[in-house]
Design a protein around this nucleic acid. Structure first.
Lengths: 110, 110
DNA sequence: TGACGATATGTCAGATTCGACATATTATTT
DNA sequence: AAATAATATGTCGAATCTGACATATCGTCA
């Protein structure tokens, strides 16, 4: 590993279902959040690499700038659906998408 | 290809944003739907391979049998979030998940 | 055939997410 | 520093999704 950036796993305002407050996410929940973070990072990286602005991408997606910002922040209340659609709108292929999810130094050029 | 089953791409009751009715999905929309189908298939395959019932999986997910059925049918109104969580609940790893999305004969054992 | 377990389909109220908008914060350029 | 562009943050009504439930269909076994 190297480009892991430390993986801060912010967990900001996360709900984290019911009783398991902040500490004690199940393995699955952890993986789920990790995937979200990867997609968020991948989204931002790709957008910047393409020299696009959040507002531009938003229009292409029929969404709004603020929502794009929230996606890239992996904020609670953004679905994977939206993140993935955004990535597709940036020209990401299924294979590249898979690489982003699987992790492991996959941030190849666009 | 071989286990593609023909990829019926049912498109049942799909909304397909605004003007492009049924015919003329954009490339991105097509890819998005394809991903959904792959996840749905992967989910069903994995569940069966593990010998679990929809009801059983539903309980593990704090969901309901009917919703699992809808997921496996890739019905409109089920999010990728839910499908992915279901796959994780079945013990699918990030790498396996990526393989399902990328496609290409990836339905390895569980 | 009838009973039974599993899966499919339809509906609905409550919860969540959406796009939009206002506004703050952070670069960047002059 | 002031202006400008880009991004972040907060809020809100409308749209969508969720779990639960009822009920129908299917498959298998006695």
């Amino acid at each position: 590993m190297r480009e892991e950036k430390k993986k801060r796993l912010a967990t900001k305002g996360w709900k984290v279902g019911s009783a398991s407050a902040f500490l004690g996410l199940s393995k699955d929940e952890e993986t789920y959040i990790e995937i979200r973070l990867r997609l968020a990072e991948g989204l931002k990286n790709r957008r910047l690499r393409r020299g696009r602005t959040q507002l531009g991408l938003a229009k292409a997606l029929h969404s709004s700038q603020s929502r794009i910002a929230k996606m890239e922040a992996s904020a609670p209340g953004v679905t994977l659906d939206l993140m993935i659609r955004a990535l597709l709108a940036l020209g990401t292929s299924k294979r590249e998408l898979a690489a982003i999810i699987a992790g492991g130094s996959s941030a190849r050029a666009a």
